[in-house]
Design a protein around this nucleic acid. Structure first.
Lengths: 161, 161
DNA sequence: CTGCGTGCAAACATTTTGCACGATG
DNA sequence: CATCGTGCAAAATGTTTGCACGCAG
């Protein structure tokens, strides 16, 4: 069921092979679902989505696959302070390639924003290059979070109890 | 034991009062410790540090206090993918006010970096103002993470197993 | 045919919660 | 002196692991 181009294997096959990993149904289905679903999903949300196409899957496999993909840099493991991780595709043909969030520290609402100016893009590239040089890192991705209090929570006042 | 200025109460008293919270020994000690310890600490690391000054403290109180401080925006709850949260002071007289991390997706090593150019500072301020206007958020903090593969892990090759 | 990957269930770790007592303002 | 906050222990939750079977390469 993975969506493919006019023909040939899905784009992620070379990622898996390059890492010495086998191509299996659970991996294909998880990647397929992530690649066509924008947003951040918890492991059990992914579990339920995958189960609809592949009912015999186990939750442990979902966790193992997500960790694998995360170690490959294909998937981004996120934490918004809810006590469980969330995941999103980090790399892919249709990925915009940046993950910028506005997170409310009271209600944990998350807003994705996409706006990014040319100036920012340039500066970002510069910063990444400096970091790579200085620390010997091979940077594959980034995530910018802004924390604050959302409109609704501001209206509730400053009491924190 | 909290370190105070020449006289008068520690700087965080007004934060607590402003939120309608009482000033108690556990809260004072946790804030005191965080404010003089740079770095990111897990709940139980903080628990052990606090216990040395205040042995009767319970781990639950540490969690409750950290959540409180996090909701106030005084403390930053971080997740580097280790399966437990880490905390650091977000606001305070000596806080540099930015939390920028370089995170290895293989070994989860975290490098804090402090370098930030004037150009970046300006742009950041601009971006924050735009976001506040556009989404009605009151931004209190931010965190920038760059993900990649550290020098050591690069040497181990691409196999991810 | 040789491992690697999977499903299941049990184990683990961290974090949260209920309750009765004690401290704060 | 009325609550709010705390300590303890138990519970809940999310995530990891051990093992035997099955499939990819």
């Amino acid at each position: 069921m993975p969506r493919r181009g006019p023909m040939g294997p899905p784009w992620w096959h070379h990622w898996l092979r390059n890492c010495g990993c086998r191509i299996t149904a659970p991996r294909e289905i998880i990647l397929d679902i992530l690649s066509r679903s924008p947003g951040h999903f918890s492991a059990d949300e992914i579990f339920f989505m995958v189960r609809q196409m592949y009912p015999q899957i186990g939750l442990a496999t979902v966790y193992r696959t997500l960790e694998l993909l995360s170690n490959m840099g294909l998937v981004h493991k996120l934490d918004f302070g809810e006590g469980k991780a969330r995941y999103e595709l980090a790399q892919g043909p249709e990925t915009k390639g940046h993950h910028h969030h506005l997170i409310c520290i009271r209600c944990h609402k998350v807003i994705d924003y996409e706006e990014i100016s040319e100036k920012e893009k340039e500066l970002l590239k510069e910063v990444e290059e400096n970091l790579e040089k200085k620390y010997g890192f091979k940077i594959t991705d980034h995530m910018f979070n802004f924390y604050g209090i959302c409109k609704e929570c501001q209206e509730k006042g400053d009491e924190v109890k």
